[in-house]
Structure formats: C-alpha cells, structure tokens
Computed example of a mutant assay.
Amino acid sequence: MNKVKGILCLLGLVSSGCIWSSSSDLVLGSIPGVSQLYSYPNNCTEICYQPMSLEQTVAHYLNQSLQRDGYAGQVKVRLEDGQVKVQFPDAVPADYGTRVMAFLGMGQSALTAAQQLNEAHVWAYNWRFFLPHGMALENHHSVQLLHFPPDDSLMQAQDYLKSKTTDRWAALLTLNGVPAEQTPAYQTIIDLAPVAAPANVGSKLAPTYVAFTPYVKGMIQQWSQMPQDGQSYPMVAFGQPVRQWLVQSYGQQFQYAGAAKGKAFATLDLGALDVGGRQVAVLGANHPSQIWYAADPDEYGGDSTKADKIGIQVMGQDLVASCWQAGMGAKPGSDPATQLQQCQQRWPVGSAAVCEQFYQSIRQLNPSEAAERCQAPG
C-alpha cells in the first residue's frame, strides 16, 4: 500500500484497497500518536491504578473488540522502529485491520478537535480524551448515540461498556430477549463528546459539540453501515442533548413526524436519518440514567408516591425503547414503525408488567413484593 493510500485509509476516507492480512503486521502509527489515541496511560496520576504498558493497553482494547465481535484468540502488540505494530490471530478476517484503522482515523480527527478546544481554553482540567475503544467493530447489531463516557470507565474499569448507564441498558435489552452475552454487540456507542468526565458536568460539555461534530458524523457513517450495500443498523438517540444535536446537525437529512411543525425530537419518536443515501432508523429515548433522577423523592419535596409514578412512566418508555432496539437489532430489515407498535403493545402504559419492573430494578423489591405493589398500578 502506498503512502498516500495509507493516509486515506487511516483517516477512514477510503475503504477499497485498505486490506491487511491477519497474519501480517498492522501498523497503528507512531508511539506518541497511538499513546494519545488510546489515552495512555489510562489511569495514572502519581501512581497507576492498574499499571499497564502501552502494548498492554492497546492489546486490552483490541481484544475487547475481538471478543465482542465473536472472534477467538488474542492480538500481539509490540513496539518497533518507533511504531506500534499489531498482529491479529488467524481466526480474524483479513480486512479487520481496515475497520480498526478507519476507526482510529476518525479518532485522530477527534483528537485534533480536542487539542484545539484545549488551546481555546474550553477543555477542563478533569477531562480526559477517550475514544470508544473495545466496541464490536464488525458483528454489532445496533448503534447507541450518547452524550459522553463517565470517567470511571477509563480511569477504573478501562472498559467503555462498564458503567451504571450501560449496565442498566444491558439489563433492559436482556429483558427484551437479547442474551446477556450478546448485549455488548448491541451497545456500539458513539458519544457526542469523546471525553471521559465526571457525571455531573454534562452541561459544560455542550460547547464542545460543534468541534466534535465532524468526528461524530464520520463515526455514524462508519458504524451504522451494514456489510450489505445500502443497509443500515438501527440507532437509538439517548437523552435530550443528543436528540437535539441530531436535529441541529443534520437538518433536512433527519426526518421525523413533528419536524415540519417545529416540534422537538422526543422520547419514543421515530426518525429516519439520511447517511450518504442510506436510511438509518433512529428512535428517541431517555438517557439510561434519567430514571434515577426522575424517581428520586428529593426531586419532589420527599413525595415518594409522585416519584414512583413518574419513575414508572420513565421505566415504561425505557422498556419500549430497549424492546425496539432488541427487535430491530435482531432483524434490521424490519419495519421500524411496526416494531415500535409491537413493543408498545408488549409494554403497555400503566401495565402491571412495567410497574413490577420499576419496583424490582429501581426500588430493589423482590418479585412478590413488586407484584403486590402493582396490583393497582398508576
């Protein structure tokens, strides 16, 4: 592969001809460049929480991707001639390196944006650049558009899918028929801000959206496309900032029922996003963590009855959204509107089934206690 072609492949601007054999080395880039893209060292201040070398860090995240894509074996990573080189196990398809390099190419654009934000004094001292490493890159079922990753996922877990938010949504997907071991392949996450930050700084990240928009759009284009030409994975847009970003960033490329009337893209609204001529079905959803705020009695002056009522309402919306994601992810060619209708019938508003799930998962009651509380739900 010539130098120009290699650069285009790295940036994700071309795909044809960007093939690396699984038995040969894939050069990720220079040691300093790869260190930045992998947020290395992941969790060190004066003392490293989990001491890992650069080679171990890269291997850690690539192995997560292989596992979530369903491939056996472990990658081998080494530093040589100032570069980071990777060798994949034989079970991995020859074009897997293409996907890795396309992802890192978009990641480089995000890193450049982050550096510019820092120069403009927008970046905060307790933010860390963090790309969605470890996702299923080839055999995923759906895409999740979220706000930003919690800093614990980087600094503690070193796993983008290890947080209260992702754990809760995985449990909802399981309730809707997705085997627990397959939920990571449904949670292929793209964040508006690839910034690991404390959970309470979401509003402070809003000024970064414009800078990261080219990165996010590029990631949506990459990760929403199925191997079959013209087909797309379904996408769920979690939370008001994300739903608003879709409308503002795509304009007429994003269509939903209330658009012509100027209505916001709301929870359980169904939209269609035009991505390079492909139609991506998008469902609006609550942020997975919203229920903990919605069901907090302190938000209503200590009124636990009101907190439970609103919490059950949010739980119902979340069950419908996760049901839609599970169904569309299992059969991407399904009609999105029909799938949504079926999920609303499965989890009816005010039903005992929704009520019981709220009391079991949020109030931590056992099944019999939850059933007793929900004899007359609402």
Rank of each mutant, 00 (worst) to 15 (best):
Y38R: 08
Q313C: 10
Y256R: 06
F129P: 01
Q313T: 11
L111T: 10
N126I: 14
N63D: 13
V275T: 14
D25H: 12
S304L: 11
K217G: 01
Q341M: 09
V320E: 04
Q339R: 14
Q342M: 12
D152Y: 07
A185G: 11
A180H: 05
T166F: 02
I312V: 13
L365F: 12
F88R: 01
A157N: 14
A199Y: 04
S304T: 15
W127V: 09
G177P: 06
Y293A: 06
V4R: 13
Q255K: 08
K162W: 11
F129Y: 04
R363G: 00
T57L: 05
G378Q: 10
Q345A: 15
H140E: 07
L319P: 04
L319K: 01
A260S: 08
C9K: 06
K5V: 14
A337R: 12
Q252W: 07
N200S: 15
L192Y: 04
M235R: 06
S351Q: 02
Q244E: 05
A352M: 10
W223Q: 07
L268M: 09
S24Q: 12
L137F: 11
V75D: 06
C355W: 07
N42T: 15
V143S: 06
D269L: 04
D335M: 02
P41G: 15
I31N: 10
Q187I: 13
Y250T: 00
G378P: 00
D69N: 12
V242E: 00
M315K: 00
M315P: 03
Q64H: 05
G329P: 11
D298M: 11
P234Y: 06
Q228Y: 13
V27G: 07
Q64T: 08
R243P: 01
A337S: 15
A281L: 08
H287P: 02
W223T: 00
D69Q: 02
V236S: 03
A199F: 09
A260E: 14
G251V: 04
Q228S: 10
V77S: 01
V320Q: 02
A72D: 00
T188C: 12
Q67N: 13
L28C: 03
P234R: 01
P149W: 03
A281E: 03
L365K: 11
A272E: 08
E369A: 14
F212W: 14
V86P: 02
L8E: 09
Y233A: 05
G262H: 12
P241K: 07
L340G: 02
A370T: 04
H140R: 13
L173I: 05
Y293R: 07
Q364E: 07
R278H: 13
R243M: 06
K76P: 01
L11Y: 14
G70D: 06
F212K: 02
C323Q: 04
S142W: 03
H140D: 13
Q248V: 11
C323D: 05
H141R: 08
A91K: 04
T267K: 04
S109L: 15
S24M: 12
P297H: 00
P332M: 12
A110I: 10
R99T: 06
T183P: 09
E299R: 12
A193M: 09
F103H: 11
P89D: 00
L270P: 05
F254S: 04
Q83M: 06
D274P: 07
L117H: 05
L175V: 11
Y61N: 02
E46V: 15
G302N: 07
A321P: 02
M106W: 09
A110W: 11
A197L: 07
S39W: 02
T166V: 09
A211P: 12
K3A: 15
S30K: 06
T208I: 14
G218N: 00
A295Q: 00
M52W: 11
W292G: 00
